[in-house]
Amino acid sequence: MLWSVILLSLQVSGLALFFAAFIGVPFGAWLALTRFRGRSIILAVLYTFMGLPPVVVGLMVYLLLSQTGPFAQLQWLFTTNAMVMAQAVISTPIVAGTVMAAVSGVEPDLRRQLLSLGATPLRAMWDVVFEARFGVLLALVAGFGRNISEVGAVMLVGGNIEGFTRVLTTAIVLETRQGKFDLAVSLGLVLLGLSFLVNGLLLILQTRTNGIWRAV
């Protein structure tokens, strides 16, 4: 039971992160590298969405997928698809905002220099984002951390169905309610371990990159 819960947690959060990265990385980079009328409004909305209460997202996704909602025919409610959707909505602004901050930190004239060296605008944008790769990686880790630790939205749209939509966080809630504190604490430690693993991986990557810099 434990392994299936862990695997499902990783699967749902990983897939949600994939969609969040697919939208959030280019969107964040675009916001960092362009100036246009109304940009500050988009930024204000993005910052607001970075702090979206998960339970509110859960409610929105629930209403969209419920029998009376516009996407009822998908029949995703109380499935892992709904959980992925909710987590992707929660983590996309976090990924986009963090990527924007990272790319904004790159020397502003670098893109113009790369264009002058013959890069196409898309290629120059890609190379500037690559220059901010550690920040982008950090954005992905932050997004994954938000996904894996999220409980309110997945509880609402997934329903915490055993063997089907039960993930680590919803299992902890259930076991606590049932008074099985030993199991709840164990599951909590597994969750902490996963977070530690992801952050450790980031640290290794960072150290390895620094190591390369020091070695030359």
Binding site: E107, D109, L110, R112, Q113, L114, S116, L117, G118, A119, T120, R123, D127, F130, E131, V216
Partner: peptide, 26 residues
Amino acid sequence: VVYLFQRPLLLSQSVYDNVNYGLRVR
């Protein structure tokens, strides 16, 4: 035409990869 900014504005890569940049994008 190539314009060189006052600051070097290099990529965090090797000297070789930086010098090769203009050829790579072509």
